[in-house]
């Protein structure tokens, strides 16, 4: 069985786009490939912008969930 991926977290709640994207970009710069970054946000724009940023940088969005105001995006760093 393979080792589970290490998980990092980023709280971007209360930030409006593009700040969640900027924070994700800064956080991922310090993470190793294979790490899963869990992002919490409240701006609905993050639901479109964070995955778009991941696509152009080759990272994989493995989950994107909105529950009321809270948004949770899980990204596998490549």
């Amino acid at each position: 069985m393979s080792e589970p991926n290490p998980v990092a977290t980023l709280n971007a709640q209360g930030l409006l786009c593009p700040m969640p994207v900027i924070k994700v970009q800064e956080r991922i710069a310090d993470l190793r490939p294979g790490t899963v970054l869990e992002v919490l946000a409240t701006d609905p724009g993050a639901l479109a912008d964070v995955p778009a940023w991941c696509r152009v940088h080759g990272h994989e969005v493995i989950e994107s969930v909105q529950d009321g105001r809270e948004i949770r995006i899980r990204i596998k760093v490549n």
Partner: peptide, 14 residues
């Protein structure tokens, strides 16, 4: 939701 144009352009260009 409105798109972020800079990201949209980047995606168009790859």
């Amino acid at each position: 939701p409105k798109r972020n144009n800079a990201l949209w352009v980047a995606e168009q260009l790859g």
